[in-house]
Structure formats: structure tokens, C-alpha cells
């Protein structure tokens, strides 16, 4: 405890250098960076490619966006769930391989899949909260288990021939399907964060010991955040099915790195308590548009991993600089 105590709490604000004020700007608006980047790249994309095709592009964008949103839910609450991608695949296999053949492929499938997603998320949350396993390793293990189960359930890809799901890749009535799969969870989330639950969630992500001592039920809230992640992952599974009109066990780990990169870019600090789902979407958009632009400018896809890796490195470093506590004397 060697921090300087100033007598007056509201001393005259010293001149803040530009770099510092930019840092504060981005700290208060964690999604700003990715949003700006998205807008710029979107403009370039549309300018260079007149037939941008927003509906199809959105459909292709939905799985990575939802994977990032699902991962973000647990991360904001101070946990992490690396099995989101496997959960999405599980939902997809359940829908295509089991519910549809059993005649449950109609709208009845939606509540079933969401409940299953919530259960999977809850299980992951319990591993971290009740068994107190390090969330990284615990969720890696569950990703492994789930990937194995997916492989058992669908050793070869299963094709979906028709159904409402496929509409989500194009249009439902006049609304692009992907706007529904991304928009509905996003809207519900923005409602949630304004409730007591949202305030509790950000508090446990920011400092769980404080929240605990103030009377917040940290375990319950954290498990709930995993459960929400599970539900969003189920929606992601539906969007993925719509995009590829099939279920394929090999996608069990396809979105792990993409989701982490997206949330890091979107201003969601990996240790929790900062950022929001909008940032996750913006981060995912950056990734998606980078991929697009490589194609657009005829850059070979072999650059993809290099660019992703560099982007992620850049995102975590700037994220950490932005989130760093204000420098105080003698601290």
C-alpha cells in the first residue's frame, strides 16, 4: 500500500497527453477500435466489389460472429469456454442428424437446441466453479470430450436437404436470416446487461473477490454466463448448419482461434469485466472482412494464418495497454 494519498479528491486535472487520452477513450469504448476498423474495411470491400451481396455475406459471417459472442459471454464473467466451437457443431449434428430424421426438424427444434446448449454451457460452468478447475484446461478437456462425441454421432458429414434452417442463409420473409441469428441474441444481451444480472456479471468479471464479499452469488452468476454462452453457441450451430447445409464433426475446433481473436480485437479483456457482445461482433467482422479482402485483392489464402496470428498478437497487446490501470506515483 504505497499509493500516494492526495488530500483533495478533485484536484485540478493535469494536462493529459494525447496517447493517454486516446487510451482513456478506447477504455471507455472498448468496441470502438474494431468498429472503426470494420467500417473502413467494409467501405473498401463494397467499393472494390460492387456485387457485395450483403445477405450471403452476412450468412457466411454469422457462425464466426456467434462463436465470438458465445465465447465472450463467459469471458466477460471472468471465465473462458474454449469448447464453444464444439458446442456449435454438437447443436448442428443434433439438428441435422437426429432431430430432423425424428420429425423434430420444425420450429420445435429451436427450444430443444437452446435448452441443450444451456445444459452444455452449464456443465462447463460447473467444472470451473464447483470443481474449481482452471477454466482454460477444463474447457479444453470438455472441448475434447465434445469433439469426440461429435465424431461418434456423425462419423461422416450429414447433409440437410430442406427445412426452415436453410432460409436463415438467405432471407426469412424480407429480413436476412443472419440478421436474426446475430441480432436476436445481441438484442437479448443488451437487455440483460441492463438488469441486475448484467451488473453482477460485470462485477464478478472485474473483481470476483470484491463481488463475493459484497454479497453477490459469484458461482451462480458465473455458471449462468457459461449457460448463456451455450445458448448462443446453439444459435451459432443453427447458423453454421444454414451456411453449409450439413453437419460435420470436423468443425468441432474450427472457430476456437477465430473466436478468441475476435473478442480480443473487440475490446473484451480476456481476464473479464470489460467489453461487450457488440465488440465481439465487431471483432468477428474484422476477421471476416480481412479474409474477404485477401480474396478480393487476389492475395493467396496462404497468408490467412499469418495475418490472423499477427492480428491477434496486435489485439492482445493493445488491449492490455488500454486496460492497464492508470499510472500512479510509487505504485
Amino acid at each position: 500500500m504505497s499509493t500516494v494519498l492526495r488530500r483533495t479528491s478533485n484536484s485540478v486535472a493535469p494536462k493529459v497527453p494525447l496517447a493517454e487520452s486516446m487510451r482513456l477513450f478506447f477504455r471507455l469504448r472498448p468496441a470502438a477500435f474494431a468498429t472503426i476498423l470494420t467500417v473502413v474495411m467494409l467501405a473498401i470491400n463494397i467499393a472494390v466489389q460492387p456485387h457485395f451481396g450483403p445477405v450471403q455475406q452476412l450468412a457466411a459471417f454469422a457462425p464466426i460472429a456467434l462463436a465470438a459472442m458465445a465465447t465472450a459471454a463467459a469471458v466477460i464473467g471472468g471465465g473462458i469456454d474454449l469448447s464453444i466451437s464444439a458446442q456449435m457443431t454438437f447443436a448442428s449434428i443434433l439438428l441435422v442428424g437426429y432431430l430432423t430424421p425424428a420429425g423434430l426438424g420444425g420450429y420445435i427444434a429451436i427450444p430443444i437446441l437452446l435448452v441443450v446448449g444451456a445444459v452444455l454451457g452449464t456443465l462447463n460452468g460447473l467444472l470451473a466453479v464447483v470443481l474449481r478447475l482452471p477454466p482454460i484446461v477444463a474447457s479444453l478437456a470438455s472441448m475434447f470430450i465434445l469433439a469426440g462425441i461429435n465424431l461418434r454421432l456423425a462419423p461422416t458429414p450429414v447433409i440437410l436437404f430442406d427445412g426452415w434452417v436453410l432460409n436463415l442463409a438467405s432471407q426469412v420473409w424480407f429480413i436476412p436470416g443472419a440478421l436474426l441469428t446475430i441480432g436476436v441474441p445481441l438484442a437479448l444481451w443488451s437487455f440483460f446487461v441492463r438488469t441486475a444480472f448484467g451488473r453482477n456479471l460485470y462485477a464478478i468479471g472485474g473483481n470476483d473477490a470484491t463481488a463475493f464479499s459484497a454479497g453477490v452469488n459469484v458461482g451462480l452468476i458465473r455458471v449462468a454466463s457459461y449457460a448463456i454462452g451455450g445458448v448462443i453457441a446453439a444459435v451459432g450451430g443453427i447458423a453454421l448448419t444454414a451456411l453449409v447445409s450439413s453437419a460435420d464433426a470436423s468443425t468441432s475446433s474450427s472457430y476456437v482461434i477465430g473466436a478468441i481473436t475476435a473478442i480480443a480485437l473487440g475490446g473484451i479483456v480476456i481476464t473479464g469485466g470489460r467489453g461487450g457482445l457488440l465488440g465481439a461482433v465487431a471483432g468477428a467482422a474484422v476477421i471476416f472482412l480481412v479474409q474477404n479482402m485477401l480474396t478480393l485483392f487476389n492475395v493467396s489464402q496462404v497468408w490467412l494464418n499469418l495475418v490472423f496470428g499477427a492480428l491477434l498478437l496486435f489485439a492482445v497487446i493493445t488491449g492490455s495497454i488500454i486496460a492497464a490501470p492508470r499510472k500512479e506515483n510509487n505504485s
Partner: peptide, 18 residues
């Protein structure tokens, strides 16, 4: 930068593969 090795190693692994 006091960041999770999980993320940084993921990034570097992807970069190296790239």
C-alpha cells in the same frame, strides 16, 4: 503486457504456421 499465455501462444502458433 501481463497477458494470458493461452492467447499469445495461440497467436504465435498461427503466425508461425502462416
Amino acid at each position: 503486457f501481463n497477458v494470458e499465455p493461452l492467447v499469445v501462444t495461440l497467436a504465435m502458433g498461427t503466425f508461425a504456421l502462416g
